[in-house]
Design a protein around this nucleic acid. Structure first.
Lengths: 194, 194
DNA sequence: GGTGGAAAATAACATAGGTTAAGAAATCAA
DNA sequence: TTGATTTCTTAACCTATGTTATTTTCCACC
């Protein structure tokens, strides 16, 4: 199990010795996901969080009319799960699926609690990680209310890495910024014409 | 300084002795806010978080057309700040203001770091608090994409305590669910007619 | 208890974005 | 490669929500 990506990622936020990294890594379970594999399916009780080592996943909900809405893309170095299901131990409402061939490290909720006691810096790490995620999500709420669809699309292209913007189906981008694929297509043709 | 509300709130998530509560409480600064007082103003670098002991605050941004968008209401027992400004030490984009006469306890960022070292359970407390806030905010993103304005309004009324739903100006509710006051008014007349 | 200013209601009209449908282009399976 | 699916584009038409303007109601303050 190659922990380079994980170690580098954790050390962006907290200081861990090589020995500590080894302890931490031992709690993770490696899992390969071929393209379009569902990692967590709507309706189950999710009890792990996933760190993306390679590839890209997405989490999405399906509304009562059958439309998908994407909550999150998780390229390499990001975390993804249905957190509400994990912390409240309730049925999940999200699907988590690989968009391309991917590899994740899974951390079970029970392992996580144990890990926090053994390496308290990891509790700090997850606090900081969650604070950042909260800021980003709140930013998205504000943008959803104050920006036009075209501006949200431009923002999206500027914010997400090229691997996401250019290598995933456009309908996913539409489902993320909150418009129909048809309307995204129309916006794009307007943007590139002018 | 009456710490009843704060102690009760913290003990919902972590177990603290009376002695620990006292240590924690010593880090907070009490502040009274008459109605419509701005606690944190857009453009400053915010370096504290506020716990609402009494009353109700709101955080909002003003877009380039001068429209306000409300990110959060914080009635008694809630926390509020511009977290992005606090953690990134950058100029805030949010205003935080009391809607009615209120009382808050302020916790400075520096005090918070010190507190985490002295009472590690408080780091756990804030991790859990932030996880919950993240779930709620993500839920709001999904609702913004999948629900109609009328359903968002109904949801809002069912989710927030009566004190918020019935005691604050409707235009604030509109600025929270993401519609104009005029359209909220129209929706309400439709809802109550049928 | 009256008065001035904010908030809410109403209504006519405007528009961003959705819907439906059909064809073109890309991707996939064998 | 080829045929089958899925995705993307285009375009005509539709609807939820916004805009502007006017009127009515609600309060805060004298």
């Amino acid at each position: 199990m190659d922990t380079t990506v994980l170690a580098k990622h954790i050390r962006l936020k907290v200081d861990l010795s090589d020995a500590e990294i080894e302890i931490v890594a031992a709690y993770f379970i490696e899992k390969d996901l071929p393209k379009k594999t569902i990692l967590f399916k709507e309706g189950i009780i999710v009890d792990a969080i996933a760190f993306v080592v390679e590839g890209c996943l997405r989490s999405y909900s399906v509304d009562e009319n059958g439309f998908e809405h994407i909550l999150q893309f998780a390229p390499e170095g990001w975390w993804i799960t249905d957190m509400l299901s994990v912390i409240k131990r309730q049925q999940s409402v999200l699907n988590v699926e690989s968009i391309v061939d991917s590899k994740v490290f899974l951390l079970k909720r029970a392992s996580q609690d144990e890990l926090f006691d053994k390496v308290p810096k990891m509790e700090r790490f997850f606090r900081i990680l969650t604070e950042n995620a909260l800021c980003a999500t709140r930013q998205r709420v504000i943008e959803g209310m104050s920006l036009t669809a075209k501006d949200r699309y431009i923002n999206f292209c500027e914010t997400y890495p090229d691997t996401v913007v250019n290598n995933i189906p456009q309908k996913y981008v539409a489902a993320y910024i909150g418009v129909t694929p048809e309307f995204l297509s129309k916006m794009r043709s307007q943007l590139y014409r002018s």
